[in-house]
Amino acid sequence: MMGEMWPETDRLRMHSRQTYARLLLVGAVIGAMLALTSTFVFSAPFEPEASAPGSAQQGQGDEDTDEESPPLETAFSASQGDCVTWSEGDVRDMRTVPCDEEHLFEVTAVIDVSTDYPSDAPPPDMDQWQEIVDERCTEPADAYLDSGLDPHGRFKVSAIFPNDTDWEAGQRLVHCGLWWLAPGGEPQPMTASVAGLDQSNVWDVGTCLGLEDNTVGDPVDCAEPHSYEMIAVVDLAEEFGEDYPSESDQMSWLDTECAEHADSYTDGMDLADNDLIVAWDTREEASWEAGSRLVNCKVGRVLEDESGLAPVTGSVAADAEDGQDTEDSGGTDDSDDTDSE
């Protein structure tokens, strides 16, 4: 949750890819991520495996393949613990890489849905895929992490499922996993296994999050219009220890703590004189139980009618070359997503 009075909304953008590569939105998660559900389910070409001897080989497609679709570069196969990446904006070259290299997805389980979907069964529709992920991918993801999955944390449950060609050839393996999505839906790179990463939904100091379609978007250069600039990462445990602090206790402490960070980050800038506010996140008890203790302090701007957030252009950092534009105090975009995504 966030300090100040401004509600936050998580919007996930739909992407589409032809034939072998498509990202399919199975449900937008609004607000505080109230349940452990997948955000995206996406399909990929699979390497033939013993459980699916009839799977299509690399580069084979059906008669309906769009002629404009580029040829398949690699077949996909992965096991639990494998880290997966692909080219920006394209999943045709989906492949496994060492988890200490930049990647976008980590496999937490590989499940076989052939019992429910035999060889002559049509592929699940989006509601059915959502149900499969909810019922069969969420629990493995929770077990995969030592402290359990933070339902409001940075990592979201998703799955890679066979594309239509491989489904028709008998492939029934689904790769459950976790990834990190920005508020605008853009997968964020990771350079370590999620099992060893803090799940706190925070951004590095100096990160600016854009405004997009009246919601907080993906990270942008601070010289561009944005919703928030992250000015600090604060560890609540340093003040409250291991016992969960109430939201009101967090708010009271962060009010002072974030003000001090803002003064240091901006070298004493009068934020109010520039129509700027200091805001912060708080942690819910479920997140605390999963080990999430970190929150962001951040700077933004409120619309004149106080209905949401206005765009800010330029950084408020004291040493920023693209300093804050004090003339830019308008805008119509509003809202950020819970837990400062």
Rank of each mutant, 00 (worst) to 15 (best):
E47F: 02
T37W: 01
Q18L: 14
V194P: 01
D125P: 05
F155E: 06
N214G: 10
D305T: 11
E131A: 15
A141V: 01
D10T: 12
V41D: 03
W280M: 03
A262D: 01
P183C: 08
E224L: 11
D281N: 12
R154K: 15
D134Q: 04
G170Q: 02
D305E: 15
V194Q: 09
M1T: 10
W288M: 13
V107W: 05
L211I: 15
E106A: 07
C137V: 06
W180Y: 14
H103Y: 06
S147R: 13
G330E: 13
H152V: 01
T85A: 07
D116F: 09
Y20Q: 10
N214S: 14
S119F: 13
T85P: 05
I160V: 14
T74K: 12
L145V: 03
Q199T: 07
I132C: 04
T39K: 05
L72T: 09
V84F: 01
A272P: 01
E68I: 09
S292V: 10
D146H: 12
T138N: 02
E68T: 13
D305C: 12
G3V: 05
A317I: 06
C99P: 05
D66H: 10
V312P: 08
A318E: 11
D127V: 13
V84H: 05
Y265G: 06
I111V: 03
D213M: 14
V205E: 15
A232Y: 02
S119M: 11
G184L: 07
G184H: 04
